[in-house]
Nucleic acid binder design. Structure first.
Length: 917
RNA sequence: GGACGCUUAGCUCAGCUGGUUCAGAGCGUACGCCUCACACGCGUAAGGUCGAAGGUUCAAAUCCUUCAGCGUCCACCA
């Protein structure tokens, strides 16, 4: 692909992968990503939302990590000690499932291996196959501080987990209680909500009469899909607003078949429109009934054993029956007693075990909980009072809503892979006392029971919810609580709290809220401060966009509609993928994504690359290199002052965009500056000097300055496209080996460089050029055809001033000469235009037919006339002139007179054209 | 059922606290160009009564109300 004319020069088409593979390893080897405690600089810290150890890179990660890397690199280049801490999550369920699947291929289950062997096997799997994602992040260019990489099962992080468990337990914030879990009666294990497959199924809705106690033969009728559970009923509920039944509240019903009396209660949960509007309440066997039971302090009667057969809590005749046999028996008995009112078909959703397809049984079991109310209050405050800010802000409402209705957190899981609950029970050796029934909660494995001295202890079988380690991440990565011992105390103080959290909104509850709680609860142990601002885990939270495919569907693993990021990077290059993603993903808005969109980034990279080639070519021809620092201002003309003004305008825009986390706006701003201002206009304009007969010193200054501006633009672009900018930055000038663009500075904004007059003047020149190009285009004048330009200008633009730009007009508008008309003289046959009130003419003698020009001119006249009409109508409206602010009215009057002038001149040209014809 | 978001050119989207970029950009389309950095390029042009209906105002794509369609999250289907 190299240019045959100049084999030494870089390739015409940028090939990203060669460049990218070269730079990342060099950066990492040189330790450029490593951040250290540096009191002379403020720290800027991000912790990566730790991906699952089982994970592979998907498009969501691309978005998330590109955002984080762009922020980190930008901060690193604007005076911060930027630290981005990577790591992985042990992902209890997902990881255990992966390893169990591989075991089942060998025809084994985890029980065949036993707990210890199984865990060894998981670790082995982790070493061999885990963390693919971490390697993939490198290809994306993520400038993580790999020396600080952590894993949630590392010993230091496990110590944090135990510390927190023990502290919360000692404060009474952790307790053990009954909870409804998804129980598989075949596997005899609880499974998580994610592991239950729900499917619609045709079932029946049974209407059952419950006699009311007291005189008379009154009864009420409940509707249920699970009649067998009535043996565990402890109440009947109606809606408190349902006037049909409210008189019954407080009375009692007699539970059929069991003969117990149960109360009639009122609860909002009941939907008056469903069934009969009366619900049987079985707290031990239905999640909703469980919560009703909690609210009304109802007893919980468990009627099943671990295999879902009926137990001793039911009348003798049902004991030992399977749940489905029991259903038949119960229905038959109800029928016989005349209590089965009717049966209807009913479609409901049934959950099945993802492994064995057995219907899941909601089952009451012993679990560990964290009391959330005491933690939620402070976490709510810091968000509502702005100590922590959400971007976009609307997520604060979702957050508040959840925290205000928070339930206790069930933290135990019936898995093997994870942090085992640091609780032991005394099994005893004959000397047990009453106290020995208490759980022994300890940071380290206890040797003996503190009460009876027995060494026969048994650790709780369960592990902790994976989020129980994730919520400590912002400080556990710095070895808390052992930071003194490992020498990380200074790091913890310097880098905590982090500045920005970039994450998907779907884990706002699981993770974001809990990290805030953990920070406020535990950070005071090392900040030594009770000030929430010092203890929060992060100051800003950026919630990423949702990615959709072209059909508008959410990109997800299960739909398989997400492109493979690795293939995208191979095809387009990491820079292009990153840039495209940032360009497309505005804050708070969904993104419709398709692979082909990466052409935007690829084309831009190519454009930047070729601008570099152009500058290198001229550098070599003039023998000029940019000065070591700053931008050469010798022999500066309008274009030079203009590009510097535009550069600093761009710096200002970028700064405000980043401050608001509008990374998409940042990308657009840099793109527009480089492509349109720098390439389309500036580089084209300097050609007129470089290829003209200017003295060598001027040409050198011109090249030097252009290289200086380009250098600055590359630095500004680097956070978005790290690889190509490094390559070019290293090439445009000789650099020392240890120097990298990623540790250079983005130029400081200098407001004095922004010159509105210069920009206005330049716009005038650009408009002239565009007017001439329009004439060429509309009149189909071939580019090879030479044309001249005549202007008739007023005092605002004297000929002497315009002469200065003649070179630009010649090159960019392709006119061979520029002349000025005096007095009333007008060319007889010419295409005309009015720019900024000044007239310009392109003589058409023998070029083209007049009809075309007349049509072109008429179009412009119509356009101006329409605008003029609008303005005049406004000004004629008395209430407008009376009520609108004076400056608005004045502005309209100015516009009116400007349009009138333009109109007069256009009309005159039109007449002239007719006369000529 | 609850909360929130979106609807602007064929497509994807900018347009913040109402009036100087007010109807815009990119892609696509049409036409002309291999002009000595780039055809992954350069130039020119066509395309929309800003989802619908009301309202506030001198003035509404922009503020308010209602409706419709699309979407996300949460809850729920006894």
């Amino acid at each position: 692909m190299s240019d045959p004319q100049t084999p030494a020069s870089p390739a015409k088409v940028y090939s990203p992968r060669d460049v990218e593979l070269k730079w990342y390893s060099r950066w990492e080897r040189s330790g450029y990503f490593h951040a250290v405690v540096n009191p002379s600089k403020p720290a800027y810290t991000i912790v990566i939302p730790p991906p699952n150890v089982t994970g592979v890179l998907h498009m969501g990660h691309i978005l998330n990590n590109t955002l984080q890397d762009a922020l980190i690199r930008y901060k690193r280049m604007t005076g911060f000690e930027a630290c981005w801490i990577p790591g992985m999550d042990h992902a209890g369920i997902a990881t255990q499932a992966v390893v169990e699947r591989s075991l089942s291929k060998e025809g084994k289950t985890r029980h065949d291996l036993g707990r210890e062997k199984f865990i060894q096997r998981v670790w082995k799997w982790k070493e061999e196959y885990g963390g693919v994602i971490v390697r993939q992040l490198r290809t994306l260019g993520a400038s993580c501080d790999w020396e600080r990489e952590k894993f949630t099962m590392d010993e230091t992080l496990s110590a944090a987990v135990r510390e927190v468990f023990v502290r919360l337990y000692e404060e009474g914030l952790i307790y053990r209680g009954k909870y409804i879990v998804n129980w598989c009666p075949k596997d005899h294990t609880a499974i998580s909500d994610d592991e239950v497959n729900h499917a619609e199924q045709q079932g029946k809705l049974y209407y059952i009469r419950y006699p009311l106690s007291g005189p008379g033969k009154r009864h009420i009728t409940v509707a249920t899909t699970r009649p067998e559970t009535l043996l565990g009923d402890t109440a009947v509920a109606v809606n408190p607003k349902d006037e049909r039944f409210t008189p019954l509240v407080g009375s009692e019903a007699i539970l059929p078949l069991a003969g117990r009396t149960i109360p009639v209660i009122a609860d909002d949960f009941v939907d008056p429109a469903f069934g009969t509007g009366i619900v049987k309440v079985t707290p031990a066997h239905d999640p909703n009934d469980y919560w009703i039971g909690q609210r009304h302090n109802l007893p919980q009667i468990n009627i099943f054993d671990v295999s879902a057969a009926l137990n001793e809590n039911v009348p003798e005749k049902y004991r030992g029956m399977d749940r489905f046999d029991a259903r038949k028996a119960v229905l038959a008995d109800l029928e016989a007693a005349g209590l089965l009112e009717k049966t209807e078909d009913h479609v409901n959703s049934v959950g099945r075990c993802y492994r064995c397809e057995t219907i899941i049984e909601p089952y009451l079991s012993d679990q560990w909980f964290v009391k959330m109310k005491p933690l939620a209050g402070p976490a709510l405050d810091v968000v509502t009072n702005g100590t922590i800010r959400f971007y976009p802000e609307r997520w604060t409402k979702v957050y508040e809503n959840w925290l205000n209705n928070i339930r206790d957190w069930c933290i135990s899981r019936q898995l093997w892979w994870g942090h085992r609950i640091p609780v032991w029970y005394c099994v005893g050796d004959g000397h047990c006392m009453l106290e020995c029934k208490q759980p022994i909660v300890s940071r380290t494995t206890p040797e003996r029971c503190p009460h009876c001295g027995s060494t026969n202890l048994r650790q709780d079988e369960d592990v902790l919810d994976t989020w129980f380690s994730s919520w400590l991440w912002p400080f556990s990565v710095h070895d808390w609580p052992g930071q003194e011992a490992t020498g990380k105390a200074a790091d913890l103080r310097y880098f905590y709290p982090t500045d920005t959290l970039v994450t998907a909104p779907d884990i706002i509850f699981f993770w974001v809220a809990r990290m805030i709680m953990a920070g406020l609860k535990f950070a005071p142990t090392f900040t030594g401060s009770s000030d929430p601002a010092k203890n929060i885990p992060f100051r800003d939270v950026y919630f990423t966009s949702l990615l959709r495919d072209e059909k508008g569907r959410k990109m997800s693993k299960s739909l398989g509609n997400s492109p493979d990021p690795v293939e995208l990077i191979d095809e387009y290059g990491a820079d292009a993928v990153r840039f495209t993603m940032l360009y497309l993903a505005p804050l708070g808005q969904d993104v419709v994504y398709a692979s082909e969109k990466n052409e935007l980034g690829r084309n831009f990279a190519n454009k930047v690359w070729n601008a570099g080639r152009f500058l290198l070519m001229n550098r070599d021809q003039t023998g000029e290199a940019p000065p070591a620092a700053g931008i050469n201002t010798d022999h500066a003309d309008l274009a030079d002052r203009w590009i510097l003004s535009r550069l600093h305008t761009t710096l200002e825009e970028v700064r405000s965009a980043v401050a608001a986390y509008e990374m998409s706006r940042m990308a657009k701003t840099v793109y527009d500056f480089l492509w349109h201002d720098f390439c389309d206009w500036y580089l084209e304009m300097i050609k007129s000097r470089l290829y003209g007969d200017e003295p060598a010193a001027v040409k050198k200054a011109v090249v030097s300055r252009a290289l200086g501006v380009y250098d600055a633009a590359l630095r500004l672009l680097h956070p978005l496209m790290p690889f190509i900018t490094e390559e070019l930055w290293q090439t445009i000038r000789a650099r020392e080996d240890s120097v990298t663009i990623m540790q250079s500075r983005i130029p400081d904004l200098d407001p004095a460089m922004i010159d509105r007059d210069v920009e206005r003047q330049m716009t005038f020149v650009q408009n002239i050029i565009e007017a001439v190009r329009n004439i060429r285009g509309e009149m189909s004048i071939p580019p090879s055809r030479e044309i001249t330009l005549a202007m008739k200008t007023g005092p605002a633009h004297p000929p002497a001033a315009l002469r200065l730009y003649e070179g630009y007009l010649q090159r960019l508008a392709r006119v061979t000469s520029l002349s000025f008309l005096d007095g009333t003289a007008r060319p007889r046959m010419a295409a005309a235009a009015v720019v900024d009130g000044e007239e310009l003419f392109v003589p058409l003698e023998g070029l083209i037919d007049i009809g075309l020009e007349r049509a072109r001119l008429q179009k412009e006249i119509d356009r101006i006339a329409a605008m003029l009409n609008g303005i005049r109508a406004k000004l004629l409206n008395a209430s407008f002139t009376a009520k609108a602010p004076p400056d608005v009215v004045a502005r309209e009057r100015e516009k009116e007179s400007a349009f009138e002038t333009t109109m007069t001149k256009l009309m005159r040209s039109m007449e002239q054209l007719s006369d000529g014809a």
